[in-house]
Simulated assay, not measured.
Amino acid sequence: MVVCAPARYLVFFQYFGTKYSGVMETSSDQSLIGVQNYLEKAVQNLKPVAPVKFHISSRTDTGVHALCNSAHLDIQRAPGKPAFEEKQLVHGLNRHLKPEPIRILNAHRVPSTFHARFSALSRTYIYRLLMGCSHHSEIPVFERDLCWAPGGGYLNVPAMQEAAQFLVGTHDFSTFRSLGSETPFQSPIRTVFQVDIQPSSGFLSHHYEHRGLEFWELKFRSRSFLYRQALLDQTLRPMLLYSTTLSFLRA
């Protein structure tokens, strides 16, 4: 019987990252493991002929969430079985991801030359700030692990917006990365396309408007970022909601 060649798919997925070590695969004996571990366990339940690897476009760290990350994978089915239809793959993966807070959003059949990481045109990270809380215990329960609530007064937004524009363009971001987080051979030069600071809304925030809380989003978009590049203070990273990774990919 004729054996069909593997079919390559681009999948978009999201996850609530609090309980994971990040998106990348880790050894199974760690206390926190990666989102990729669960994705690859789910796809093995679809009975591929060979083990399947998710090639993820964008890395996220421990505790960071993703509205939309992406990856490509190759699936070879048993002889005589056709390649998965796109919706069939989405439903099958989501069925086997339960009860994890990880969901496949959609899937697209792509050529074998496509690569999720190297075909990505840009990536966007969004930091959410909550102002108006004098203590972390005042953060609404529905916003737990989804924002950072610094103490003190309110933001000087015009000054922040003016300063943020100095990050736009092509720069050496050596001073914005953790010590020892990179090999000495990787260039620290990166191009930031966009920095926005805008008011936002909280989950069900209209029910506690009387508290005078303010939500803000700080959005950074670039073709790529350095590993552990901290465009804001490093203490923000474990606390931010939707350090969102969005990939816009070439056809």
Rank of each mutant, 00 (worst) to 15 (best):
residue 87 K to Q: 13
residue 87 K to T: 12
residue 88 Q to P: 09
residue 89 L to T: 01
residue 93 L to C: 03
residue 97 L to G: 05
residue 98 K to S: 14
residue 99 P to I: 06
residue 102 I to P: 00
residue 103 R to S: 09
residue 105 L to I: 05
residue 107 A to Q: 05
residue 107 A to S: 05
residue 108 H to G: 06
residue 108 H to Q: 13
residue 111 P to A: 08
residue 111 P to I: 08
residue 114 F to T: 02
residue 115 H to R: 13
residue 117 R to M: 02
residue 119 S to D: 15
residue 120 A to D: 09
residue 122 S to N: 13
residue 124 T to C: 07
residue 127 Y to M: 05
residue 130 L to K: 00
residue 134 S to V: 07
residue 135 H to T: 08
residue 135 H to S: 12
residue 135 H to V: 07
residue 136 H to N: 14
residue 137 S to N: 14
residue 140 P to S: 03
residue 147 C to H: 02
residue 152 G to E: 00
residue 160 M to R: 10
residue 164 A to F: 10
residue 169 G to F: 00
residue 169 G to N: 03
residue 170 T to G: 09
residue 171 H to R: 12
residue 176 F to T: 01
residue 180 G to V: 02
residue 183 T to P: 08
residue 184 P to S: 10
residue 186 Q to Y: 12
residue 191 T to H: 14
residue 196 D to R: 06
residue 197 I to F: 07
residue 201 S to V: 13
residue 202 G to A: 02
residue 203 F to K: 15
residue 203 F to P: 11
residue 205 S to T: 09
residue 209 E to S: 15
residue 209 E to D: 15
residue 210 H to K: 07
residue 210 H to N: 12
residue 212 G to D: 07
residue 216 W to Q: 00
residue 217 E to I: 09
residue 217 E to Y: 01
residue 217 E to H: 10
residue 220 F to A: 05
residue 222 S to R: 00
residue 223 R to P: 13
